[in-house]
């Protein structure tokens, strides 16, 4: 009973979080947390469910941000339409890139996505006419809700983003209880066995990859219309690494893990601000340490404890 109610309670707390404080600074941090959580959840589809490492995910985030910003500023389309377009643009790139690179898997795939991410980063930096180069784009219009007006306050914007996060988190949860989701895990766990059960490994991976890039694109759009300033640095190696840190440190292959990872990232970023460059060293140490000592992320710390009470679980077999 408690276990059934827990997710609902957590979702409710998350949804009403900004009501607990008057501080606009904290509201701002919360919005950032949710934006990163959405992004980390989408990357988790690739890393956690499909079992492939993608270093190009920040590029799709950036593509979405730029697509949405440019569309609203140059053509004047409403922001909600631009957000959908942002998802589509990122998904289109995701399809092409996935189609090319998913034929190879493992480390080669990871490096290829890194290469693609770098191309997009480079082009964004140099295509001045469209992207204004390294200067970035500013004065991006905010999200406007009909009848309410522009969402200028961080607290108001939080509700938009948290709705997206909760919807996508639920979608991921539902995915794992569907045939498609089982195919994702099968492909991750054992591709030849998956194929022997009728699962088209390549198409399954492509499907998951494209879905993840669509969501990353939407997250990028949401980011652009919130901060109202974007630069190509969104797609830099720093960001790519940060995303992977969130998913891995939080716990890949779970819904809670990436949200937790995003929280840790955002909070540490703020708390360590005083340390200057040292904070990046702390991050790196955090990544290295957690990968080596907690390979399945922070959420895995809580699980063995729960399982130990279960007599049906046998000790790990000797290798």
């Amino acid at each position: 009973m408690i276990r059934k109610a827990l997710p609902f309670a957590a979702a409710l707390v998350l949804a009403l979080l900004p009501l607990g404080t008057q501080s606009t600074y904290l509201h701002h941090v919360m919005v950032l947390w949710m934006l990163y959580a959405l992004l980390a959840l989408s990357l988790n589809v690739i890393i956690g469910y499909l079992g492939e490492l993608s270093f190009g995910h920040a590029a799709f985030f950036g593509l979405g941000a730029y697509a949405s910003a440019i569309l609203t500023m140059q053509t004047g389309v409403p922001v909600w339409l631009a957000l959908i377009a942002a998802g589509l643009v990122a998904g289109l790139f995701g399809f092409v890139i996935g189609y090319v690179s998913l034929r190879i898997v493992g480390p080669q795939f990871a490096i290829l996505t890194l290469g693609f991410g770098s191309i997009i980063y480079t082009v964004t930096n140099y295509w001045d006419d469209l992207t204004r180069g390294p200067m970035g784009i500013n004065n991006i219009p905010p999200v406007t809700v009909p009848g309410v007006g522009p969402l200028g306050e961080a607290r108001d914007y939080y509700f938009v983003v948290v709705a997206c996060v909760l919807a996508f988190a639920y979608a991921c949860h539902a995915l794992m209880r569907s045939r498609t989701g089982r195919a994702f895990l099968a492909v991750r766990e054992n591709a030849p066995l998956a194929a022997s059960l009728g699962i088209d490994v390549f198409r399954t991976k492509l499907l998951g990859f494209v879905a993840a890039t669509v969501v990353a694109g939407i997250a990028g759009g949401l980011y652009a219309h919130y901060l109202r300033v974007i630069t190509p640095e969104l797609m830099s190696l720093q960001y790519m690494a940060a995303l992977i840190i969130m998913v891995v440190v939080g716990g890949r292959g779970t819904v809670v893990g990436p949200i937790l990872g995003a929280l840790i990232y955002v909070v540490l970023l703020e708390v360590l601000r005083a340390f200057g460059p040292l904070r990046l060293i702390v991050f790196a140490a955090l990544l290295t340490g957690s990968v080596i000592f907690v390979p399945h992320g922070l959420v895995s710390l809580w699980r063995p404890w729960r399982r130990r009470a279960d007599p049906a679980i046998r000790p790990e077999p000797a290798p």
């Binding site: 490492l53 992977i244 891995v248 990046l280 790196a284 140490a285 990544l287 290295t288 080596i292 390979p295």
Partner: peptide, 12 residues
């Protein structure tokens, strides 16, 4: 694990 720990090392 190895790839990510080497990424951590690189950042470090």
């Amino acid at each position: 694990t190895v790839l990510l720990s080497s990424l951590g090392l690189a950042l470090l």
